[in-house]
Amino acid sequence: MTTPDMHRPELVCPAGTPSALRTAVDAGADAVYCGLQGPTNARNFPGLNFTAQELRQAVAYAHGRGAKVLLAVNSFPPAGRTAEWKEAVDIGVAAGADAIIVADIGVAQYAARTHPGQRLHLSVQAGASSPEAIRFYCRAFDIKRVVLPRILTVKEISDLHSRIPCEIEAFIFGNIGMMAEGRCSLSSYVTGQSTNMDGVCSPAGDVHYSEDADGALVTKLGQFTIDRFARGESAGYPTVCKGRYCTKAKSGYYAFEEPVSLNLTRLLPDLMRAGVTALKIEGRQRSRAYVKAVVAAFRRAVDAYMAGREPGLDNLLALTEGHRETQGAFRSKAWR
């Protein structure tokens, strides 16, 4: 039920293509986040993302319907290649993006100094979860909002809220991994490419699927077998953090994380009371069908809670990885 201390949150939704952005806006997104083509954002997948022209058109579409566009420039430029990231910031500002989402301190510094009026958000890729770290980013780069890593309980988020001078954005749905955003090198170890600097975890060119004689789906990343899904078993993404491992202690078990998706529908009131300004849906790599279904479901849920009603919780299980959901660390540190 709604209470006076419950804030109406902004629903922040993903878009990998201009069409997905329009779908998100039409489905009720308050804000849509997206990235430019290339390695400057954390979803650098083939056929995905926006050109500068598409971004300008997307901003016009969203603003015409009262929605915001947030541009993710949230990977880390390798040495000697900062020009591409600076250009991405410039493109976002010129297009009229409502905020630039940054992670690297050099990119943040460039954006803050070159475009002092531009609103900046701190990406989850920055991995800032302590009051001290977040306050530093706010002081140094005038960060207005932090996207929190998915390692904090709702109680911890509530405590954090009173100790930082910026807004909080929290993930509520979608893919989750090891929660070491900006620091994970597992994909880089196997493929030479990582989300951090190349904008892609488990690049599609290194992923190979096959089916064996038993009807099992075998997923490989580079030379490594990541998983083997028995006939009829729900499959998951081919990321190293969700692979099954054989060790001396155990065989064929998920050492890091299981194929499972975050779904915090039932925790929305707690998050809204904890001072969370924005609720984020993961999935820029997903289709328009996913965007439409998930955004519409959370639009209805948030509106229902704000109106003091209990929402009819949509079944989003079919869209989840491995067809399984979790509340992750948001409910308890006992998770994993």
């Binding site: 083939p46 690049p203 190979h208 699927y209 089916e211 078993e233 289709s287 069908a289 079919a318 869209l319």
Partner: peptide, 18 residues
């Protein structure tokens, strides 16, 4: 959603995933 079809094993790809 194609990922959902992949999770449910209703869609299969092989070869050059990119």
């Amino acid at each position: 959603d194609s990922d959902a079809l992949f999770f449910s094993r209703d869609l299969r790809v092989d070869g050059d995933t990119a």
